[in-house]
Amino acid sequence: MTQKGFYFDMTACIGCKTCQIACKDKNDLKVGVLYRKVSSFEGGKFPKPWMYHLSMSCNHCAKPKCVENCPTGALYKRADGIVAQDIEKCIGCKYCIWSCPYGAPQYKEDQGKVGKCDMCADLLDKGENPACVDACVMRVIQYGELDELKQKYQGTQDLAVLPESNITKPSVLINAKPVAEKGA
């Protein structure tokens, strides 16, 4: 089994949220439901204030707690490592929401089911890119085989604002600003 993942270059992200909107549009999400979300963090004081943005979706973890805990098997891991969902099987119990340290699964009130980022698997299967990757004006989101991304880029899975990566082993590589690093 291989493992696909995302790369995010925080150092160049301007927080425009185009990825968030492209994702929302692609997945036709209602108000309040986001498969990819940009969070902004700020702190410090003059003369050294700081700010950074973090664009995060499902991290298609190597050890996904959502898949382990899902009672119906609606959430599953594809051979390429993507954490996908068989929406027909979902019963809307929301246990995946209680399981994910990244808030990736989202409850869709109108459908009585949960939905989540599947890395635009339908587009990938057609040889295209995920909507967020294509939409990013700063080109700070990339995707691919996690091993290849790790060879190409520097990065971490642990930030000061994220739960420890050993909980679920997220398939994401983040080029963090020094101020965002764990223990900073």
Binding site: P71, T72, A74, K89, C90, I91, G92, C93, K94, Y107, K108, E109, Q111, G112, K113, V114
Partner: peptide, 11 residues
Amino acid sequence: HLGTPSGALRA
């Protein structure tokens, strides 16, 4: 508690 109670047995 379920969003789709008709699928309860799938649990």
